[in-house]
Nucleic acid binder design. Structure first.
Length: 109
DNA sequence: GGACTGACACTGG
DNA sequence: ACCAGTGCCAGTC
């Protein structure tokens, strides 16, 4: 497990409940705004369910990878909905309101 | 040591 | 507005 991994896991773990972050945000917190690929890869390599809420990490579309490791995209949607993340009729998370602001802390409008 | 892969993001047409 | 191609980074073979 490299330091980059730890940074990714920590960034993901910092995502407050009811909020989601994009790979780009995690990459930015990691120190490399362009490392969005590596971020997703880190999560894929070490899913660590229970410790790393991958379900709170979505791409810039507000949607997760085509192959979710938690059991299915429906599971993630259900979890995020339970957390209070607004979802659009398209099946994507409403990034306009659910997107977490890194550094700004856990806001709750 | 080099090359390929991969849960993304951005720019160009 | 949409589709396609390219670039980034880290890890693994």
């Amino acid at each position: 497990m490299s330091a980059f991994y730890d940074a990714v896991y920590r960034a993901v773990g910092r995502i407050p409940k009811g909020r989601v972050a994009t790979y780009g945000q995690i990459a930015l917190l990691c120190g490399n705004p362009r490392a969005s690929r590596a971020v997703g890869w880190a999560l894929h390599q070490n899913p660590m369910p229970g410790v790393i809420p991958c379900h709170r990490v979505v791409n810039r579309e507000g949607r997760m990878a085509p192959a979710f490791a938690f059991g299915g995209p429906e599971i993630q949607r259900g979890m995020l909905e339970e957390e209070g993340v607004p979802f659009l009729p398209d099946g994507r998370a409403d990034l306009a309101r659910a997107l977490w602001s890194p550094g700004a802390g856990e806001e709750n409008p």
